[in-house]
Design a protein around this nucleic acid. Structure first.
Length: 543
DNA sequence: GCCGTTTTCGGCCCGACTGTTTTCAGTCG
């Protein structure tokens, strides 16, 4: 299927093939462009039509021309050219964990190995023995990696990774001589999927910390351990890096290991311009450490206001921080209630009372209880006074018009495969508020242009796009959500369809909204209860 | 191949860890 996702894959393959040829710098340039394209919220065709492809970070003349070519013809001939220069099987060898382009290329040049199958044969025939740089351990690692090949490590949904991380942090705090322990990496940036976990700790006895960590029941194997860093694999294959630093370097290390790569590279080049050096131990002027204990200190030393982890992606946030113009982002305490709580999930009236208590505990003023369209909304029990206000949402699978029967607002969950509003009820439809739960993930092949008809719908009626942190049933991902925010549309933030005991997960969804650049004014359920009641003209239930 | 309040050419982040080494190359994040 042509589109941004395919173009990203093409650039990544070009990068790998150039790597195999030993070409320097170009592979990173293509990867940078690929990462950048993944974050583009607008249709590439439109950007190209305006002649603005080069405004995408990492896209210069040569890559812009290849994008334009792809948009015209659906192919990038340069890919076929570089494919012709190395055997395709080498890609599989270089992607074996622990091995890379240099090894794959040497096996090809020195032994004629063109792919995994030939490598297997060569290993069996002991043809690698005696090859310079290939000792018995490396050969054994290669054989083991080859035997396990194919199982590409899966990225976990954010919520799943978060639960694993929480259990590891709790175990470390309880059993290891640590002062501070925090999660870093893409989980801290609240990326919607997480490839591995990064945990950072301060301690005066790192060795003991690693001992305790290695002995945790969740951990299957220790892959490597040095004086400052340990890498382990969990039973389900997830890789976890634990690093221990001294307190004076904690902020610098947290900043460094939170990333992203592009953000850090940009920061370090900024530091060079100012005669400074940044590494995971601090910001240095010559030998002198001028910052390091806190992240705020690190950013301040570089002349920047502190940048929230969720937007550290080098998409303009560093320039904004330098100018003191970082936009305010939505925060957990801004959330005033939930709007998408399924009555079924609560388990009836008793469950509703429990949910009301949970909502109070979280400081919320209202709950939007959602019922199926067929049920007519009449079955939602009222709450005793003093509890959160209860609104009733009616869930439907098609774009509705008119007032929801027996409810205050609509919740739209399109039937599977629907990616644009159907004609019925869409054009010119006005009506009470609509919360749209669209399964719109760039990873799953959603193209930026596909949001356009939905945004058009938002010009006719109040609509909010849902952002959740459930397990595989999420609404907009942060890239699509960013597009909605940039278009001035509202988001609705929630924990997904989970029990009230797991509502804390709404904080992860807040993280996704932050990644999208949403401030409090962009989030429907950050509005006070009175505003909300006004935003739909239906009857409302009072507690 | 990209990029620029030290540059339109000459740079391109930087440290940890492993395996094979006797001072380093490759890989990773």
């Amino acid at each position: 299927m042509p589109g941004t996702a395919e173009l990203v894959a093409i650039f990544r393959e070009i990068a790998d093939l150039l790597d195999l040829q030993g070409v320097r710098f170009k592979p990173e340039a293509y990867r940078r462009a690929a990462r950048s394209l993944e974050a583009v919220t607008e249709d590439l065709g439109q950007i190209s039509a305006r002649g603005e492809l080069r405004s995408i970070p990492g896209v210069g003349d040569a890559i812009a021309e290849k994008i334009a070519e792809y948009l015209r013809t659906g192919t990038v001939p340069y890919l076929d050219r570089v494919r012709g220069e190395v055997p395709p099987g080498l890609l599989e060898i270089m992607r074996l964990p622990g091995f890379g382009p240099k090894t794959a290329r040497r096996l090809w040049v020195e032994l004629g190995v063109e792919g995994p199958r030939e490598l297997e044969t060569a290993l069996a025939a002991h043809r690698l023995d005696g090859l310079a740089g290939f000792g018995p351990k490396k050969i054994a690692l290669l054989a083991a990696a080859l035997a396990r090949a194919g199982g590409t490590p899966m990225r976990r949904p954010l919520a799943a990774a978060w639960e694993i991380a929480e259990s590891l942090l709790a175990a470390l705090r309880a059993g290891a001589p640590v002062d501070r322990v925090e999660v870093a990496g893409s989980l801290r940036r609240r990326r919607e999927t997480v490839g591995d976990l990064d945990i950072l700790a301060t301690s005066t006895a790192p060795e003991r910390v690693f001992e305790v960590f290695s002995a945790l029941p969740q951990i299957r194997t220790v892959r490597m351990r040095g004086p400052t860093k340990e890498t382990v694999e969990l039973a389900d294959g997830l890789q976890v890096d634990l690093r221990v630093v001294e307190p004076a370097a904690f902020g610098a290390a947290l900043q460094y290991f939170t990333g992203s790569k592009d953000h850090n590279v940009h920061l370090r080049s900024l530091a060079r311009e100012r005669g400074l050096k940044v590494n995971e131990y601090g910001v240095f002027r010559g030998e002198e450490r001028v910052a390091g204990a806190t992240e705020a200190e690190v950013y301040a030393a570089l002349g920047l206001t502190e940048i929230p982890p969720e937007i550290r992606e080098d998409r303009g946030e560093i320039e904004a921080a330098a100018a003191g113009r970082l936009p305010p982002l939505i925060d957990g305490p801004d959330i005033r209630g939930l709007l998408h709580v399924h009555l079924d999930r609560l388990g009836g009236a008793a469950g509703l009372a429990d949910a009301a208590r949970a909502a109070r505990r979280l400081g919320w003023d209202y709950l939007g209880i959602v019922v199926a369209e067929e049920s007519g909304g009449a079955s939602v029990p009222s709450l005793p006074t003093g509890g959160p206000k209860v609104f009733v949402g009616v869930e439907t699978t098609r774009v509705p018009s008119g007032r929801p029967p027996g409810g205050d607002y609509w919740v739209l969950r399109p039937a599977e495969g629907i990616v644009a509003p159907t004609a019925t009820g869409a054009a010119g439809a006005t009506g009470p508020l609509l919360i749209a739960h669209l399964p719109a993930s760039v990873d799953a092949g959603f193209e930026p242009g596909q949001l356009r008809p939905w945004l058009a719908l938002a010009t006719d009626r109040p609509i909010a796009f849902e952002v959740t942190a459930g397990a595989g049933e999420d609404g907009l991902d942060s890239t699509v959500a960013r597009q909605a925010v940039q278009a001035g549309a509202a988001l609705a933030v929630g924990p997904g369809d989970v029990a009230a005991t797991e509502w804390e997960r709404f904080r992860l969804a807040v993280g996704l909204a932050r990644r999208a650049g949403a401030g409090p004014s962009n989030v429907l359920n950050a509005r006070p209860v009175t505003d909300l009641a006004r935003s739909w003209a239906g009857r409302r239930r009072t507690g």
